[in-house]
């Protein structure tokens, strides 16, 4: 148990929680989706830190799964679920 790694993970978790605001408020669908993508990168970081912090080498594989499948949701989104005809640029 290394508390340093875990507290670093905690900080990144907080940044995820803050990033959720963008999912909730993001004006275009893409904003929401990209915020979810941010969760993916941060999730990888948390997993790597926890792998060290909790001494569980398997977590690297989970991080690898995250990294491999991260693009999947975005690609599906871009190809299948994005319908807005014109964007609403926020000023």
């Amino acid at each position: 148990m290394s508390y340093l790694h875990i507290s670093c993970a905690l900080i990144i978790l907080c940044s995820i929680a803050a990033g959720m605001i963008r999912i909730l408020s993001g004006p275009t669908a893409a904003d929401r989706m990209m915020a979810a993508q941010l969760f993916g990168t941060c999730g990888v970081a948390i997993l790597l830190l926890l792998a060290k912090g909790m001494d569980t080498i398997v977590l690297l594989d989970i991080a690898l799964v995250f990294a491999l499948l991260a693009a999947l949701a975005t690609i599906t989104f871009v190809r299948r679920a994005w319908h807005e005809q014109s964007g609403v640029p926020r000023r």
Partner: peptide
């Protein structure tokens, strides 16, 4: 759509929860 995106992030966080539960 927002609900679906939230569900995706929910899945990510659940994975973290399982990790935490060893």
């Amino acid at each position: 759509f927002k609900a679906v995106v939230l569900f995706i992030s929910f899945g990510l966080l659940m994975a973290l929860a399982w990790v935490r539960m060893r």
